[in-house]
């Protein structure tokens, strides 16, 4: 029935999404949130249209400090599975990590990030991956401000902003140990350290 169809599309947004959005409205009167969330997604591949998120790791930064207890990590249950990328992220389809459904993971992620500025290395990709997951829930895109550590690095070097430097290269430049590389939380932590350094150098 057309009415049902109409109701389905116009149905009221779920509470978690409203809560998420209200975090930004509140900002109008209040000063900007000083919280940054550095996050990283491990995915089945590099195509936001076809690939899906396998895990999200994130860590909060306030001022000049990474807050270890402001931490987020989830593993997702997915039907899309690409054996060829397993060597990179090490997440098996039936791994021992406790896995959440994609909607559950997204809900927790939104309630975790709130209105923080999102930071990531090539963060556009990770944001796109999350946006695709949101789209599958019939919701809009992420509203958070974004900072890409790659852009910061190119700016710091005085290079063209379209240049590309990998996380491994930055680890070498900033003398950061690469343990836990290619786990979402490990990459998020590494990126957070890089961000702290660049933040100081660029006086952000």
């Amino acid at each position: 029935m057309s009415f049902d169809w109409f109701r389905k599309t116009k149905k009221e947004a779920p509470q978690f999404w409203k809560d998420y959005l209200s975090g930004f409205q509140k900002q109008a009167g209040n000063p900007l949130s000083k919280r940054y969330v550095v996050f990283d997604c491990e995915t089945t591949g590099l195509d936001p249209k076809k690939d899906v998120i396998l895990s999200i790791g994130a860590i909060g930064i306030e001022g000049d400090a990474i807050l270890v207890n402001d931490y987020f990590e989830v593993f997702l249950e997915q039907d899309v599975y690409r054996p060829e990328t397993v060597p990179i992220h090490g997440i098996l389809k039936t791994g021992k990590e406790e896995k959440l459904t994609e909607p559950e993971a997204v809900i927790r992620f939104l309630s975790y990030i709130k209105d923080a500025t999102l930071v990531g290395h090539h963060t556009n990709f990770d944001v796109k991956m999350v946006n695709q997951a949101l789209k599958r829930l019939d919701l809009g895109k992420l509203k958070n401000k974004k900072i890409d550590t790659n852009d910061l690095y190119q700016k710091h070097k005085g290079w063209q902003s379209d240049q590309y430097s990998g996380l491994d290269e930055l680890c070498a430049v900033f003398k950061i140990s690469k343990s836990d590389r290619h786990t979402a939380s490990g990459d998020a932590f590494i990126t957070a350290l890089i961000f702290l350094k660049l933040k100081k150098k660029l006086r952000i």
């Binding site: 400090a65 270890v68 207890n69 702290l196």
Partner: peptide, 11 residues
């Protein structure tokens, strides 16, 4: 304890 740690970077 480690959960409550802050990681600080100094130039």
């Amino acid at each position: 304890l480690s959960n409550q740690v802050q990681v600080v970077y100094l130039e």
